[in-house]
């Protein structure tokens, strides 16, 4: 088995991070949304709109960062529909999320028709971080990546710190665990929930740009290929913890990277089988993680999926 060399392993791990970044960003967005008590199943649609907005803006401006910003905006715009429906009007979160996924898929396919397959003038390039990239193995895996990947590191760390260590994070956790208690303490639950749903959508959009501007530059219909769903499942796997989301996203990235790498070295595994793996893995994670007892152990926000309204006392 000559492909099981150190060189192969290191390049596989580096690719795992590259491919895992889109899932990581979407997963972090969903994690924040769910911590606030709102389930967003529209991630896939938001990623698609983000990917399209990113590619189109990059075509027009020749700038990947402007593209990324546009992707955030597209995701946030989609998410504000979700916020309006589920937080403002207290509609069913599952139905609204599914509708947005279908809507995002259809709309992005329609609007993206003129630029299908058009090569981008530029895309995210590998940037070696001085000093850090010289560290053996670790440098090659973590610090010879694109700007988008470095940005995702920063977002993951900032989110972890925010949720665990700041008063804003305390409020975020409170409105997802016990919104009536937060309300009684004078916290505006629905305003905060709206904000976190929109923030989550912006991160999902950015995740879309991590595909259309970095790993698979350009736009084709359904470019995300279900990664939004993986991100949703991953939140459960991660136990609503950003650090574990990092691990999970790279695991999925690794499965995806393995697909390419094995084909590259000529190992005869059906690509259809390998394409299936992430979804199989998703199902397994969901089965393992959603059993009642496990749900309690893993610390799902207590009020997840329940719209908040002040109790109607007669």
């Amino acid at each position: 088995m000559d492909f099981l060399t150190v060189g192969f392993t290191v390049s596989l791990l580096a690719a795992a991070i590259t491919y895992g970044t889109a899932i990581l960003l979407a997963c972090l967005g969903e994690l924040v949304t769910e911590r606030a008590g709102v389930l967003n199943l529209g991630v896939e649609g938001m990623m698609l709109m983000g990917a399209l907005a990113g590619a189109a803006t990059c075509l027009a401006t020749d700038n990947v960062w402007l593209g990324s910003l546009a992707a955030c905006g597209a995701g946030a715009a989609m998410a504000s529909i979700h916020a309006l429906l589920t937080v403002g009007l207290r509609a069913n979160q599952v139905v609204s999320g599914l509708a947005l996924t279908l809507f995002g898929a259809g709309l992005s396919a329609f609007l993206g028709q003129p630029i299908v397959g058009v090569p981008l003038p530029t895309s995210f390039q590998t940037v070696r971080i001085p000093v850090l990239s010289e560290i053996p193995v670790i440098g090659r895996i973590f610090f010879q990546q694109s700007g988008m990947v470095y940005l995702s590191y920063v977002i993951a760390i900032v989110l972890w710190f925010y949720i665990a260590k700041t008063r804003g994070g305390l409020r975020l956790r409170a409105i997802g665990e016990r919104p009536e208690a937060a309300d009684a303490m004078g916290i505006n639950v629905n305003l905060l929930r709206t904000w976190y749903v929109i923030l989550g959508g912006a991160l999902a959009g950015l995740g879309g740009a991590a595909i259309s501007l970095d790993t698979n530059p350009g736009w084709v219909e359904n470019i995300t290929a279900g990664r939004g769903w993986i991100a949703v499942a991953l939140v459960i796997f991660a136990g609503w913890n950003p650090a574990r989301a990092l691990l999970g996203a790279y695991l999925f990235g690794g499965v995806e990277a393995l697909n390419f790498k094995l084909q590259g070295v000529g190992v005869a595994v059906s690509p259809f089988f390998l394409n299936m793996l992430p979804y199989l893995f998703t199902i397994l994670v969901l089965i393992l993680a959603t059993r009642q007892s496990a749900r309690v152990r893993l610390g799902a926000p207590d009020a997840l999926g329940i719209p908040y309204q002040r109790e109607d006392r007669g």
């Binding site: 260590k165 008063r167 804003g168 409170a174 303490m185 207590d302």
Partner: peptide
């Protein structure tokens, strides 16, 4: 009106205005 996973002091902190961000 308490958030069960939080400590007693964290529950109190939820109602405090004008404190540090951490």
């Amino acid at each position: 009106m308490l958030v069960e996973p939080f400590t007693v002091a964290e529950n109190v902190l939820l109602g405090v205005r004008n404190s540090s961000h951490l």
